[in-house]
Design a protein around this nucleic acid. Structure first.
Lengths: 197, 197
DNA sequence: CAAAATAATTTGACCAGTCAGTATAATTTG
DNA sequence: CAAATTATACTGACTGGTCAAATTATTTTG
């Protein structure tokens, strides 16, 4: 079945994700992936061209998953402020989920310069993120609560603040900072959009 | 004597930097470093404990160099706005220097979670950066042009914006975006600090 | 339906290559 | 010459990828 094959691929991707999360991109071997997936080494090469191919699919999976979750939680809300809050809430889901997800994502970011394919996937991810930002900004402008001259620029800036906050949080690796950086990120963006107090 | 030895170390670190810049952290070998330094492989192991030791010294060198340059260019200026501009100018020196430096730095960031030692060096770097931000914020508050309630928070936020902008610029890897992200970063921080137009 | 044939999947041994680190030899220096 | 430094050769561990054989699933046939 094509169904069965798709399941196997998912299983391998999940295993690759766990492996990278535990050991870091560079040190994950094909054997690791096989071990995490509870299959033998050959399987990975049966379903994917090679190691890079596995990782490219993994990056694609991660970024689209992040984007879709963000888009979904925004769509539930009506006002720009609620949407923004939902966005930030989704970005900073929970310390556990965040750490694993964004550590792996950061690994890929630093690999992007060496792999054209990763870079392309990440470019797509950025565009998705910007479109989320633009939508919220448009909504806020229509509501008359955001004061922004250049919408595209605002979208870029929003994502900068999000990524910058996430990375700083990730790097400090102390307890109890998750809520702090979530709030910092939220407030920074509100100031950027010049929302009246 | 000890002078010569120190020179050799510097030579090796510079070689390691060039190698990482060209090939990326994960794929640099001890042989690469030796080749870039025009010495034989044994030399690296003579002056450093092992590969990680070389890289830890390199990270330390990079981060203190970035910090010192930033601190120096800020010190030249008197007003908060000038200082901020000098800061941003130094962060976004030139496309060439930026790309090499921050690509290597990003490599280290993603490795930090796996190496306690890298993490410690990076923590120190963050604290230095925050102190730069705090100084400028204090100056601006004294001048009455920044409206910030929490200075520490402002410092964190400033560095978030800087890192976020740098990474987004790095990842897009298109021509002519350097000036755009420099300006975006500058304007975002000004808005954050609620400078009157 | 059952046996046989065929196709798809899985396994793990294996290969050729690479690397970090070590040991030792050669060279320089004082 | 002796100590410090550098060059070279080597080792053992590990990796990505291959592949023939084994196993399992599916289809065909009588």
């Amino acid at each position: 079945m094509a169904k069965k094959a798709e399941q196997r691929r998912q299983q391998i991707l999940k295993a690759a994700f766990d492996a990278v999360s535990d050991k870091g991109y560079e040190s994950v071997t094909l054997q690791d992936i096989a071990d995490y997936a509870d299959v033998s080494k050959g399987v990975t090469n049966y379903y994917f061209e090679n190691k890079v191919d596995v990782f490219a699919h993994l990056l694609e999976w991660i970024t689209t998953r992040i984007y879709e979750k963000e888009a979904a939680s925004i769509k539930e809300k009506n006002t720009a402020l609620e949407q923004l809050e939902a966005y930030i809430n989704q970005v900073f889901i929970s310390p556990e989920e965040n750490k694993t997800f964004y550590r792996v994502y950061l690994d890929f970011l630093s690999q992007s310069k060496n792999h054209q394919r990763y870079q392309e996937i990440n470019r797509q991810f950025y565009e998705n993120c910007w479109s989320l930002g633009t939508d919220i900004v448009n909504q806020g402008i229509n509501e008359g609560i955001f004061r922004v001259s250049d919408k595209e620029q605002a979208a870029h800036s929003i994502r900068s603040i999000i990524d910058g906050s996430l990375i700083q949080w990730l790097m400090r690796d102390e307890d109890d900072l998750h809520a702090y950086y979530k709030s910092l990120c939220h407030q920074s963006i509100l100031r950027l959009l010049q929302v009246e107090k």
